[in-house]
Amino acid sequence: MRHDDASAPPPGHSLDRLLARAARLAAEATPARRRLLGIAGPPGAGKSSLAAHLVAELAGAAVLVPMDGFHLAEAELRRLGRTDRKGAPDTFDAAGYAALLARLRRPEPETVVYAPAFDRRIEEPVAGSVPVPPEVPLVVTEGNYLLLDSGPWSRVRPLLDEVWYVELDGPERVRRLIDRHERFGKPRERAERFVHASDEANARVVEASRDRADLVVRFPPGEAPPAA
Rank of each mutant, 00 (worst) to 15 (best):
R155V: 00
D16N: 04
H3G: 00
P42A: 15
A191P: 07
A22F: 05
D169Y: 07
P42Q: 13
K186E: 08
R34T: 05
H3W: 03
G87K: 10
T111E: 09
E74H: 12
R120V: 13
R33N: 05
P42M: 10
R85Q: 11
K47W: 12
P42C: 14
S49C: 13
A201L: 12
L160T: 09
A23D: 12
A191L: 08
L19V: 09
L215N: 00
L64S: 14
V55S: 10
S7G: 15
A227G: 00
L101M: 10
S198R: 01
R218H: 13
P131W: 08
D211V: 00
A227V: 10
P10R: 13
R175W: 10
A191R: 06
G170T: 09
D68S: 07
R193K: 11
V217S: 07
E182N: 04
E57C: 15
P109N: 00
G38V: 11
V163K: 06
D119V: 10
L104Y: 07
R82K: 15
L64G: 12
D179R: 15
R173N: 09
R176E: 09
R190G: 06
D214I: 04
A62S: 11
A62P: 09
L77A: 02
E110S: 03
P221M: 06
I122T: 15
V174T: 13
P125M: 11
